[in-house]
């Protein structure tokens, strides 16, 4: 059985207290929310904080205020809110597709948005990783997926993050230097190690969703089973309708890069015209081109790439059907 290393566990009651605790702990400290990502990772020694600071006791982070959602709201709560099911269905739907009911009861919105990137060579026990001399994401020097690569190719595996990028949500961060608002699309880096622009001592406090206003979005997830599994491909599609025509559109791919990958050309292929079969095919093709899954998740990578076209088409057809 894999066991947790020993660590100190702190329970701040306010943001200020949490920031002070983190400042005291320095690089040895980490924030935790639901723990469904961090604790298994600690068992495998992916992260080795000596001090774990729980955010779950901070009232402000659990708040739901209109379309501002505290990051410690659980995925279960988020997916079951009738107002969200109605008016933020892509967010609620993506939250509902994460893992299993048990993990959604513990796992939080913030945790899913900050989910550690994943890779078949990384999500292994310490000893397994040691036997291949580790990888650059933790303890090693090489990327086993692409041995000549200077960077890590671990995969962004969040279901909710691609939706946030697609709908243009904003994240509010609070840190020692104060508060800042970051568009979801600028919160992520295409780098398996430094996949967030968030500083370690910053706390993701809440997410500001755009108010429903003539736009619509969907999220489609590809995985082997109906439960448990991380996405091997996620497609979030967002359209700002202008009558029968597409005003603006964004297509964001999950599970194929180290960040939620927006394919600008796919969105551009749709803009200014009705959502015709031709336009959908053009967008699907535009998304297919830059979709470059690596051989580090479930399924064959060429099949996953092919599925990009299928899934983008499906997502757009769904949006068209309900417009």
């Amino acid at each position: 059985m894999l066991r947790l290393p020993t660590f100190r566990y702190l329970q701040p009651r306010s943001l200020r207290e949490a920031l002070a605790m983190k400042a005291d702990a320095g690089p040895d400290g980490m924030f935790v929310a639901g723990g469904t990502d961090l604790y298994p990772n600690m068992k495998r020694r992916h992260q080795e904080p000596r001090v774990v600071i729980s955010l779950m006791g901070i009232e402000e982070l659990r708040r739901l205020d209109g379309w501002n959602v505290g990051t410690c709201v659980t995925l279960s709560a988020l997916s079951s809110l009738p107002t969200f099911q109605r008016s933020q269905s892509a967010v609620a739907g993506a939250a509902q597709l994460v893992s299993t009911p048990l993990l959604r009861n513990m796992g939080t919105l913030g945790g899913n948005l900050c989910l550690d990137t994943r890779c078949n060579y990384y999500n292994q026990s310490y000893e397994w990783r040691k036997s291949i001399d580790f990888c650059m994401k933790k303890d090693g020097a090489i990327c086993w997926v692409a041995p000549s690569s200077p960077r890590c190719w671990a995969v962004s595996s969040s279901d909710v993050a691609p939706v946030m990028v697609a709908i243009g949500a904003e994240y509010r961060l609070v840190g020692p230097q104060g508060e800042r608002l970051v568009p979801a699309g600028r919160f992520y880096h295409n780098d398996g190690i430094n996949y967030l622009t968030k500083q370690p001592d910053e706390i993701l406090v809440d997410v500001r969703l755009p108010a429903p206003n003539g736009w619509d979005a969907v999220y489609h997830k590809l995985r082997r089973r109906g439960s448990f599994d991380f996405p091997v491909l996620g497609v979030a599609a967002w359209i700002q309708w202008n009558g029968k025509k597409v005003g603006e559109a964004r297509i964001v791919l999950g599970g194929v890069a180290s960040y939620p990958q927006e394919v600008a050309a796919a969105g551009a292929a749709l803009e200014g015209a009705p959502l015709s079969d031709e336009a959908i095919a053009a967008a699907a093709d535009a998304a297919y081109q830059p979709s470059k899954p690596m051989d580090n998740t479930d399924f064959d990578l060429s099949w996953r790439k092919q599925m990009t076209r299928v899934y983008v088409k499906r997502a757009l057809e769904e949006l068209r059907a309900r417009h």
């Binding site: 999500n123 089973r225 439960s227 448990f228």
Partner: peptide
């Protein structure tokens, strides 16, 4: 065996 973990050796769930 490359997929020698429950996260990678997958069996049907109740939903499947």
């Amino acid at each position: 065996y490359q997929n020698d973990r429950l996260a990678t050796y997958l069996i049907p769930t109740a939903l499947d």
